[in-house]
Amino acid sequence: MTPERFVELVKEEQEVLRRFLLALCGGDRPLAEDLAQETLLKAWLASAQYVERYRFRTWLCKIAYRTYVDHLRRHAHTPLPLDETMPLPASERADDSFRHEALHRALARLPLKERTAVCLFYLEEQSLREIALATGSNPIAVKKLLSRGREHLRKLLNNER
């Protein structure tokens, strides 16, 4: 893949990737931005292995998920600073900000696999097969994960209210 083509694809998908990572990181913006750049650089280095029959987005999300898991392994003993993960730009409307904050907080408390499945399903509108591909699982397991994730998320959001 030429650098120009790669940048072109990134321009189309970078928002999706950054939003996915922001949700996955429980609203930690600096971390999400760093991981997004790391993901894109890894993708660039591995672009020769990209198979066109998969969506570029699915492939990126797979790399992003692994990058996030690697980050968690590297910082296994550093708890997520929940109070510091929430700052949002002042330009966002207060109610949106509040909703996002509550969602971030709830997502941050979901187990990683459930969080990933929920984020990919709702934010990226990926199919079970695509989520399975991204997380190295199978569609049946993803279906169960999603179901559990939804339940957990509902409970957590209710507790937030």
């Binding site: 940048v7 939003r19 750049q37 894109l40 966002e92 709702y122």
Partner: peptide, 30 residues
């Protein structure tokens, strides 16, 4: 009931062009 919540999840992400430029600089360095 979760779908509308995620549908309205549109956090501000900063300038996309600037982001891509930063990436391109890193790609060049790499």
């Amino acid at each position: 009931d979760l779908k509308p919540l995620f549908d309205s999840y549109r956090p501000e992400l900063g300038d996309a062009d600037e982001y891509t430029e930063r990436l391109q600089r890193k790609m060049e360095a790499l």
